[in-house]
Design a protein around this nucleic acid. Structure first.
Lengths: 155, 155
DNA sequence: TTTACTGCAAATATTTTGCAATATC
DNA sequence: GATATTGCAAAATATTTGCAGTAAA
């Protein structure tokens, strides 16, 4: 759904009187190619790998715009670097985060989502929500209680 | 409930054959005094203000221990610095996060909590969960759509 | 007495910012 | 032509780490 994302973005940029630069669209396109959660430097590397050079600052700036127009969401689990995720079509999902290895798994839980979507809070205008379930994934359980410090990952 | 927290901590330290240093208990005590969410440097400042000097490194280390033994939880909303919160007695609560001013409000929602507590996920051993609702608080709505960048706060 | 823990300072990692050059409108 | 946006490098922020000295066991 690259086309519809591009349309949304264009409308957003026009609405805010921001410029439609090639860099912004290149970043959006690459974001649409990402299938899972990703970190800024992953996105940056993929752009480089595709011989499309943009500065990191521009990547950060553009991600802010994409978040603002609702095409992307930013997550920060534990104290890992921020992760981004494109907002796919309908519905929301939530995350299972392994506190041992840091792995993230998406879960769709219709009943839970339905309930959350119906929730209203006084004096608060909800735009979206995130449900994060922390625990230990099967892989790490199998490996037993290893001494590895929780969710520490250098890249 | 400082006493019970101290007991829990002592048992944890003994179980892991870690040392019971005065610094660790001083930090735990101060954490128990905190009524809301707090940042590391707030905790550090309060310790200084109470003329109890510990290094920042020790504060970070001790918080990791407190998290590990379940007395404290760490949150990271948007890309603000990490916030900590002592785990109070029973039950969980969730958070309303204002994307304009960064303010956090705790919400107790029994029905939602009951549902979440009943949830089980395949191949995953849940230890706790966090529900974050992002949106705009009444104060910021009243102020209209100001140009202030979302959740940027220097201290 | 052994060695885990502390404090300090330096290192690391991520994100932001300032500014001159460039490109959109 | 005016100025928003870019790239680059430097700055800012938060957290971690190395190491020598100290203190808990």
């Amino acid at each position: 759904m690259k086309a519809s994302a591009r349309t949304t973005f264009t409308e957003y940029l026009q609405g805010k009187k921001l410029r439609k630069t090639p860099e912004r669209y290149a970043i959006l396109d690459k974001v649409c190619d990402m299938t899972e959660h990703f970190h800024i430097d992953t996105l940056y590397s993929e752009l480089e790998a595709a011989s499309y050079h943009v500065s990191l600052a521009t990547v950060y700036n553009t991600m802010d715009l994409l978040i603002d127009c609702g095409l992307v969401r930013r997550h920060q689990f534990n104290n890992q670097p921020a992760q981004y995720e494109k907002v796919s079509g309908v519905g929301n999902h939530h995350h299972l985060i392994c506190t041992q290895c840091g792995r993230i798994k998406d879960v769709k839980d219709q009943e839970l989502l339905k309930m959350m979507n119906a929730r209203r809070y006084p004096a608060f205008h909800t735009s979206y929500f995130a449900i994060n379930v922390y625990g230990v994934c099967s892989r790490c359980q199998r490996r037993g209680k290893s001494k590895s410090k929780t969710t520490k990952q250098k890249q």
